[in-house]
Amino acid sequence: MTRIDTAISDIDVLDRLAAGVSPIHRLDPRAKLIVTVLFLLTVVSYRKYEVAELTPLFLYLAVLLALGRVPVLVIARYLLLACPFAVLVAVFNPLIDRQIIAQLGPLAVSGGWMSFVSILIRFVLTVSAVLLLLACTGYVTVCAALDKLGVPRLLIMQFLMLYRFIFILADEASRMLRAHSLRSPDGRGTSLRVWGSLAGNLLLRAYDRGVRVHTAMLARGFDGKFRPLPGFHWSIADSLFVVGSSAFLILVRHGQLATRMGRWALELSA
């Protein structure tokens, strides 16, 4: 629990980074959001055995990382936290798909292993891209950009509320667990029955909290419409960023950038 605790209270590490100053931070959040979505679409558009073709996309992340002055370790920590999910998705591929499709020297590589690696690479690419977006923009600003781009307000409201109340919920959960552990000194694990009642209690508390928050919102004139603060400014730099990044993504996707770079490297060394 403590580890989940720290992970949650650490979520705003990204927000603290977002308060920084860099060429990437200065871009219009909408531009960054559009490019990130294009990037994600590019990553998922590859076929399942393609591995080498994905690699030039790391260049894009590296450039953002450097220009946005985001510490690699922060991104790596979150990747590590999320990686069990990706591994779980990919782990059965090598067992199911045993057909040999490539020969790496003496090593015969099956399709399953290729797709396994491909899934992990995609996981690293997509999650890092989103983390970088958050670290250079901030969660709330990303939500505001989504709003400006026409995502339904109700959904955005939910995103914002989630972000506000996950801390309070985590806090409440950890206090309940602490109270439980202080009264079960023999230290044996929590029984299923107790877990059930803890979880149920937490749900009830969350529900009560929801009612109280809604009351507080109504008291301040909430009429079902959510009005975020205005204030974005689209400049030429933003257009350039979107056009440049799109051109790079198209080049990677349709110009066999990986193969060309490989050939070029071979020629250089020859």
Binding site: Y139, V140, R212, T215, A216, A219, R220, F222
Partner: peptide
């Protein structure tokens, strides 16, 4: 508009992601 209520638990009252946005919530409405 004419009655402003401050509730018992400030965590219920402060529901926006930053202080500035929370204070702006009423005026925006």
């Amino acid at each position: 508009r004419s009655v402003g209520t401050v509730f018992q638990d400030p965590n219920d009252q402060l529901f926006m992601p930053t202080v500035g946005e929370d204070v702006a919530f009423g005026p925006l409405n």
